[in-house]
């Protein structure tokens, strides 16, 4: 177990190094000169050259990358070209908002998805099943931007039950989490349904029914745990995805997370921020998958035995 963990961690470090190298190369290759942008409209060739030197952009590429890695080793992600603030500070300031949104979003999608998926599987091929599947289809395919604006318009602008946008109180989190959750719930409902349908046909479930157990007990105690495995893996993936920031939702609701930071940085070609956010989300994806893998044996003794 410990060996597996070590191997996975080493793999994760390699993946991060690879992501850093690829991102660095891609951003370096962009036909945009940060020095000229910083030096502004009144710049002269001399002032642009001076800025380029200040930023170390006149060094050969391998040396620039080496310097970046050396900084990284000390937890230094560099400074934003535009804001001049340390990238680590900017990301750290926005991390809590992203974490809150991630936890709430996953909570909504799991709660909704599991409930609807189980109901649909139990009532397979009946009206409820079809209604749930249609709903989840709509949830999966509706553009998040539209869903977000629709929820905002109805619940905040018209009914006034919830704040329009911003961050700080639980009420602020409801609409963003719901927007995220509706999309995810669609996926989860479909997955849970197919997994449950599969499990409900198994012999042991028939045996449980034959023993005279109540329908609820059969579904919740015997069938559901066996259908959960793919869901846990999916939550792991979601952790990674959401940590990268959910750009659309964060933009519409003015949610001060990492996605918003990345979005602005891309607009401004603020390379150090783009690098930093990419690395943080890569780290989250790796960690999310790792956590899902670690959790699997706890849920399924068969994996533990292997």
């Amino acid at each position: 177990m410990a060996l597996t963990l070590l191997k996975r961690l080493a793999g994760a470090a390699l993946i991060l190094l690879g992501v850093a190298a690829v991102t660095f190369l891609l951003l370096y290759g962009l036909p945009a000169d940060p020095a000229a942008m910083i030096a502004g409209r009144s710049a002269t060739a001399a002032s642009i050259a001076a800025v380029r030197h200040q930023l170390g952009l006149d060094l050969p590429l391998p040396e620039q990358f080496w310097r970046y890695l050396a900084g990284l080793a000390h937890g230094d992600l560099g400074r934003s070209y535009i804001q001049r603030t340390a990238v680590g500070t900017l990301i750290a300031a926005r991390l809590p908002a992203t974490l809150v949104l991630m936890v709430c979003g996953i909570g909504v999608e799991v709660a909704l998805g599991l409930t609807l998926g189980v109901l649909a599987a139990v009532r397979r091929d009946r009206a409820l099943d079809r209604a749930v599947m249609t709903l989840s289809f709509v949830g999966v395919s509706a553009p998040q931007f539209i869903v977000a604006l629709l929820l905002l318009y109805v619940f905040a602008a018209q009914l006034g039950w919830l704040p329009m946008s911003g961050y700080g109180t639980p009420a602020h989190a409801v609409l963003p989490a719901l927007t995220l959750g509706l999309l995810g719930a669609g996926w989860y409902a479909r997955m849970v349904r197919s997994a449950m349908v599969d499990v409900l046909d198994r012999d042991y479930v028939r045996t449980a029914r034959a023993k005279g157990l109540s329908a609820g007990r059969v579904v919740l105690r015997h069938a559901l745990p066996n259908a959960l495995l793919p869901i846990v893996a999916m939550i792991g993936i979601d952790v990674g995805q959401f940590m990268g920031g959910v750009v659309v939702v964060e933009a519409v609701y003015g949610w001060p997370g990492i996605g918003q930071l990345a979005f602005q940085a891309i607009q401004q070609v603020d390379v150090p921020i783009i690098m930093g956010v990419t690395l943080v989300s890569a780290l989250a994806v790796v960690l999310g998958n790792l956590l899902a893998d670690l959790a699997a044996p706890l849920l399924d003794p068969r994996i533990r035995a292997r």
């Binding site: 910083i38 030096a39 502004g40 409209r41 009144s42 710049a43 002269t44 002032s47 001076a50 800025v51 030197h53 200040q54 930023l55 001049r84």
Partner: peptide
Amino acid sequence: NPKTQGPGAGF
């Protein structure tokens, strides 16, 4: 001063 990396130097 170029160390400041300000866009207003030219003015």
